[in-house]
Design a protein around this nucleic acid. Structure first.
Lengths: 191, 191
DNA sequence: GAGTAACCTGACCGATCGGTCAGGAACTGT
DNA sequence: ACAGTTCCTGACCGATCGGTCAGGTTACTC
């Protein structure tokens, strides 16, 4: 039985990702929830507080994954397990990730966005995207931004692909994108 | 000698992509241009008109590329040439593409966005992303959304990677992402 | 000098924004 | 019956939004 505060959080998340944070009014959120604007401000003291509550669960989850990952050696086996964990994470929290990816730069001085930036930095470290070549950095960026975009554009366009197939495809593509490249696929380019 | 109207267009593009369309006020654009808000509305009769002028060049360019491509057979050689053309396009118009990718859903009933959607659909056809498997659709989405995100996050974070290396890396990654994979998933090659 | 077109401006408008506040309604425990 | 807490509301506030309008300034033409 979800309470009103959770309803508002879910509605806000959907509106923030589709219409944009600044384009979403508290009146609009209240309308979708069947409440008045004052009621929204009763549950969340400000629009920014509502934003914080909206993205915080995703950040907490990713932080937990990274913490658990840092507790041991980064073997190839754990790497592939981590990639699947990451896929499941981004499937569950695609809207939150998309919100951060696309609107993060415009939401500076919001504390929760700083936390999100930190998490993304830690995530990038595990894919050598902070120390590696330009191509490695771009592979990480394309995987992160591309996955968030692809998954959310499905929602926005109204249709939904079957989750199990989506998950399998995502694992395949991200593995190909992020795995340490075997010598074979470097063959075609110059230098 | 750049035109005042062109200045405004460039300023608007930068602000629309970083801060978001609805979060960018005409006053802000005027301030950055050293003009008054009334002057902005002299050159562009409305905020929406300014948006149209901002994204139109990118759409025109991509339309031209697609038209020229449709005029002949889609041989493998032309396919790779087209991919490089696409990379050059997205490098030049990364802000416009990012604007459409991220804020397009919130800008419905703006005519220029409809044109952009049409262009993206035509683009998707060339990568079998409208007829292919779920994985093919996702490959296209990840390539498009990921490239736009990665290139624009560079600008937003203030640093700029060397363009020639960026271009080479982008060609490599997108080829790997979008090219029909030899053995693994060649289900949709002929048909 | 008169006319005119391009460019720019401040004052102003109605609408909407996020947020405050006093208080009503319903449910508790006593 | 009483008081307290929770939840919700409309009225209201100052600020800002996109946009209109009348008019000022420059420069070029006749």
């Amino acid at each position: 039985m979800p309470n009103t505060a959770d309803d508002l959080r879910a509605i806000a998340l959907a509106e923030f990702t589709t219409a944009g944070y600044s384009a979403t009014s508290l009146h609009r959120i209240a309308e979708l929830a069947g409440l008045s604007k004052s009621s929204v401000l009763y549950h969340y003291s400000s629009k920014e507080t509502l934003l914080e509550a909206t993205v915080a669960p995703a950040i907490d989850r990713m932080t937990a994954i990274l913490d658990e990952l840092s507790s041991g050696p980064f073997t190839p086996a754990r790497r592939t397990a981590f990639l699947e964990e990451f896929v499941d994470f981004i499937l569950q929290y695609r809207r939150e990730v998309n919100l951060f990816i696309n609107q993060g730069p415009s939401l500076i001085d919001v504390p929760v966005i700083d936390r999100a930036n930190e998490v993304v930095y830690r995530l990038a470290e595990h894919f050598a995207a902070t120390t590696g070549s330009i191509e490695d950095k771009m592979r990480f960026g394309i995987a992160l931004g591309g996955a968030a975009y692809t998954l959310c554009s499905q929602d926005e366009l109204g249709f939904a692909l079957p989750i199990d197939e989506t998950r399998a495809a995502l694992v395949t593509i991200l593995t190909e994108l992020l795995a340490p490249i075997p010598v074979a696929s470097l063959s075609n380019q110059e230098k």
